[in-house]
């Protein structure tokens, strides 16, 4: 239960972070580099990192 909640929190944070990341990436990149694929790849990477971090943080301790 605790882990599921952590993963869901990580997912929500990842989506929010992806929004901010994309919002930074698009205006700062040259026009030729901007593309929908880049946006989806970046956001998916950020979400995956956040969910992964949430999984790591919520892993059961040996103690």
């Amino acid at each position: 239960m605790g882990r599921t909640l952590a993963v869901l929190t990580g997912l929500a944070c990842g989506i929010l972070l992806a929004g901010a990341g994309v919002g930074l990436l698009i205006p700062l990149l040259p026009r030729a580099w901007r593309s929908e694929q880049l946006v989806w790849t970046t956001s998916a990477t950020l979400v995956a990192l956040c969910v992964g971090a949430a999984l790591l943080v919520s892993r059961p301790s040996r103690r």
Binding site: V22, G23, I26, P27, L28, R34, S35, E36, V39
Partner: peptide
């Protein structure tokens, strides 16, 4: 959808 978001985000940044 993408063009709309791109335009809005660039405007927001400006």
């Amino acid at each position: 959808c993408y063009s709309l978001m791109e335009t809005r985000m660039v405007d927001a940044w400006n």
